[in-house]
Computed example of a mutant assay.
Amino acid sequence: METVQELIPLAKELMAQKPKGKLVKLYVLGSLLAFFGVVLGIVETVCSPFTAASRLRDEEAAVASLQAARERQALRRQALLEKDKQPESVRCRRGFSHRQHAS
């Protein structure tokens, strides 16, 4: 069934043979499914540039959020390193004050 010209003689031959109702229903169902498949293919082809653009935007947003998380993590590490570099007397000042009052 490559062309519509072949479809018309087939339909005439089927009608000449007085087909049963179930057979006609089966051919109609197959034709409708094929038609819907073609329509869905056309819709997908028309809409695919828009969906590709939205996927690209989603990927860019995910990359940006990952970069922001990495930057925050780097800032935390840097703050911890700076805290570790503080002199011992500055870090333990509070502990000494509690000991003096406790005794």
Rank of each mutant, 00 (worst) to 15 (best):
L81K: 12
Q86W: 11
E6N: 02
P9M: 07
E2F: 00
L29Q: 15
E88A: 08
E44R: 10
R57C: 15
A68V: 15
A68H: 15
L10H: 07
V39C: 09
A16D: 14
V28N: 01
E13M: 07
L75N: 02
L32R: 00
F35K: 13
P49T: 10
S48V: 11
A68I: 14
A11K: 03
E60C: 00
V63H: 05
G95M: 04
A16H: 13
E2Y: 01
L10R: 06
P19M: 15
Q17K: 13
L7E: 14
R94G: 02
T3A: 00
A34R: 15
A61T: 06
R94Y: 03
V43T: 00
I42T: 12
K83M: 09
L7A: 15
A74E: 01
G95W: 11
Q73N: 04
G30M: 11
K22A: 09
F50N: 08
V28D: 01
L80K: 02
V90R: 12
S97N: 03
R91F: 13
E88I: 08
G95H: 11
S89P: 08
L26S: 01
Q67K: 10
T3H: 04
A61I: 09
E88C: 04
V43C: 01
S103K: 02
P19Y: 14
A16K: 14
E60Q: 12
A11D: 02
S97W: 08
A69V: 09
E71I: 13
M1Y: 04
R77H: 05
P49E: 12
R57N: 15
R72N: 03
S97R: 08
G30N: 06
R72I: 04
E82C: 04
P9K: 05
E13C: 03
L40Q: 03
K22P: 03
Q73R: 12
K20N: 10
A102W: 10
A11V: 07
G30W: 02
S65D: 09
S89N: 13
S103E: 08
A102D: 07
D58K: 04
E59D: 04
K25A: 07
P87H: 09
G21K: 14
V39K: 10
E2S: 12
K20P: 00
A62R: 13
P9C: 06
A64V: 01
E88M: 08
A52Y: 05
T51P: 03
K18A: 15
R94I: 00
G21V: 14
E71Y: 05
L56E: 07
S65Q: 12
E2W: 01
R99N: 02
A79W: 10
R99V: 09
V39P: 01
F50K: 03
S31M: 08
F35M: 11
Q73Y: 06
R57W: 15
C92I: 03
Q67T: 11
K18V: 14
A74I: 02
